[in-house]
Simulated assay, not measured.
Amino acid sequence: MVRLFGIAIGAVFCVVLLFAALAPREAAEVDPTLAFHEHPKKAHWSWDGPIGLGVFGGYDRVQLQRGFQVYKEVCSACHSLNRVAFRNLGEIGFSEAEVKAIAKNWVHEVPAINPDTGEASTRPAIPSDRIPLVYANEIAARAANNNALPPDLSLITKARHDGSNYVYSLISGYADVPANFPADRRPEAPLHYNPYFHSLAIAMAPPLSDGQVTYAEGQPEATVDQMAQDVAAFLTWAAEPKLESRKRAGVGVIAFLLILTTLAYLSYRRVWAGVKH
């Protein structure tokens, strides 16, 4: 009896499984906005390729300094860069005196404790400090940005697919809503249409405009496209400050393996030279 009961359960299971496999399914609903998404634009970066700029270089220090200027004068109003210390800016070409001046004159001071009263206070930053947070906490950040949370940009190019191109495309890719965009999905204020953003509707207003930043004499014109590339390059360095040393190490490892492979082959030929097949 138990055996027949087990066989019956197995048969019912097989019938249900067969029905599930052969039963017609409703067509999956296609998101009508998918056709409006665009892949990030491909910019030329100095670190592209196995070696990058020059023989063993990677980052264009002049471009990184321009990108830092864009971040400081535009992006730092809302976005933190809290994993980067001021002294790290020496790695992109700023002198020690310039780093001290940048830290001292930063718009946000560093949290501290008053030694006389023991109460919380602030002080000007020094080179060993990390770049201060823009907002004290998430609640304050959302309250100041219509409930949107501006992300910290320290690792943004690592946190997004094709990060450098994504950042460049996002901040230079604002556009008018297409006429054939679904009416029930159209972004409404305070949201803005951006075909490179995952939802197409982004809370951040277009951050750049032509001539918004004044570059030093002899530098390229500060167009939206140029500033977007420069700040994307700077944020790539912020996320991968050791990129150049990794590439140099990689070139050395490949050279070592090529030499080792050659020596191993020559040794093989010598050891087995007298052996007849």
Rank of each mutant, 00 (worst) to 15 (best):
H192G: 02
D176T: 14
W106E: 01
K42L: 08
R246C: 01
I51P: 00
I51R: 13
T236V: 01
A101S: 15
I131C: 00
A27S: 05
V213S: 06
T223Q: 01
A222T: 02
A175D: 11
N146G: 00
S172K: 12
L34P: 00
V99P: 00
Q63G: 08
R142T: 05
F19Y: 14
L260F: 13
S209H: 15
R142K: 15
V134S: 02
V271K: 14
S121E: 13
N137P: 05
A228L: 05
A77L: 12
S164M: 09
T262M: 13
G57C: 05
T117P: 02
A43Y: 13
L153Y: 04
N145E: 03
A222Y: 08
R160L: 10
R270V: 11
D60G: 06
R3M: 11
W237M: 04
I51G: 02
Y59S: 06
H198Y: 14
D225R: 14
A77E: 13
A222F: 03
V253Y: 11
N194K: 03
D116L: 14
F36G: 00
P24E: 03
Q63T: 13
G58I: 01
H198F: 14
W272Y: 15
A239S: 13
I7W: 11
A148N: 09
F86E: 01
P241N: 04
H192V: 08
F36Q: 06
P50N: 06
A159H: 14
Q63S: 11
P241T: 08
G252T: 09
Y71V: 04
R61E: 10
R269I: 07
V12C: 12
F181I: 05
D210Y: 04
G250D: 11
P190H: 02
G54Q: 00
G250W: 01
R25Y: 00
Q226V: 15
R130F: 15
H37F: 14
L133H: 03
P24K: 10
I131V: 15
K247V: 07
V177W: 01
S76Y: 15
F36N: 02
R142A: 05
K72L: 14
Q226G: 04
D48T: 05
M1R: 10
R66D: 06
V99C: 00
S245L: 12
E240Y: 06
W106P: 00
N137F: 08
E119Q: 13
N146H: 12
G52W: 08
A77M: 08
A189I: 04
L155D: 12
P206Y: 05
T262C: 09
N88R: 14
A143M: 08
V134M: 02
D129H: 06
N88K: 13
E119G: 07
W45N: 04
A203R: 10
A222E: 01
Y196F: 15
V15G: 03
W45R: 01
T122S: 09
D162I: 07
T33E: 10
F56P: 00
V70W: 05
G57F: 05
K276P: 01
D184C: 01
Y59I: 03
F19R: 09
L22E: 04
G90D: 07
E188F: 05
